[in-house]
Amino acid sequence: MNAAVVSANYGFAEAERSAVEERTLTYIAAISEALREEMARDPNVLIMGEDVADPFGGAFKVTKGLSDEFGTRRVLNMPMAELGFIGAATGMALMGLRPVVEMQFADFISAGFDSIVQFAATNYYRWQGAVPWVIRAPSDGGLRSGPFHSQNPEAWFVHAPGLKVVAPATPADAKGLLIAAIRDNNPVIYFESKPLYRSLKGYVPPGEHVTPIGVAQTMRQGDDVTIITYGAQVHQALEAAQTLAVEGIECEVLDLRTLKPLDEEAILAAATKTGKVLIVHSANRLAGVGAEVAALIAERAFEWLDAPIARLGGLDVPIPFSPPLEDAYRPNAAKIARMARELARF
């Protein structure tokens, strides 16, 4: 991850840039700021999870200082029982509270899968009991953390009716999408990208900053190849686009930001702009979110395509630990550039 490449101002207008310097936050600080501001704003917002209270403040320190500031009534350490406390969060949400549940790692969300996809996700459709919780899931790899601390399980949840799924790529969206998720009256899975936590800094608007759920963002304009991606791979795609620009290949880079519901119009607009589409995500490619994006483009923009839709994702193997193996598993800027170059020449 080359932070210098990705710490641009992400499309914020020049007029806003005077405030940029003092409002540059790391991705992880932006998440913490969203939590703190929403807890201050709404007494119904609380935090639950393993080891989230002070003095420890969470495995990644996202919640550090919050129980000191708001008390342990609002920052609840949970026993090591994800299924149980996700269910409890659903009960609290049914009563109108807005729990933000921290999974220590996204990998462990499978322990709570039943309660998420069966109970929380179906509830409103079945009997109109709203479940306004957020589950924060620290995901993604590249950190040499092995099969159980590197996963990207978003596709499981995109497939479950009744959930919303978001995956911010920038500090601004880390804050804005978390605020939107907390205020949403539905269960939202918020996939935060571990490799971006401290490597990525960027401008974050002060105060109330909401990134609407369901709206993608164009991160770079280009006429030759469209790269559609999300999460940490947005920055790999931008790095690849910069490499290709030197060669005269201009890439359009679309950050999906929300994986469910997909911003179909933005996807189709980006695809039809160049007619050559590469879809990238860290999660394994097979039946991943990219498959749905590819199907959408094939169904609704086939006549605009000048090349087969290309997809780049993780391999269909458990995520390996050893650096040569993990690097072989995982998409990166060089692989993206290679595939985009081939598409440009098609």
Binding site: L46, R73, R74, L83, G84, F85, I86, G87, A88, A89, T90, G91, M92, A93, L94, M95, G96, L97, S115, F119
Partner: peptide, 14 residues
């Protein structure tokens, strides 16, 4: 069962 426990926790919270 955990959902009802969470409902009860909301009463404590409030």
């Amino acid at each position: 069962l955990p959902v009802a426990v969470g409902v009860a926790m909301s009463f404590t919270y409030r």
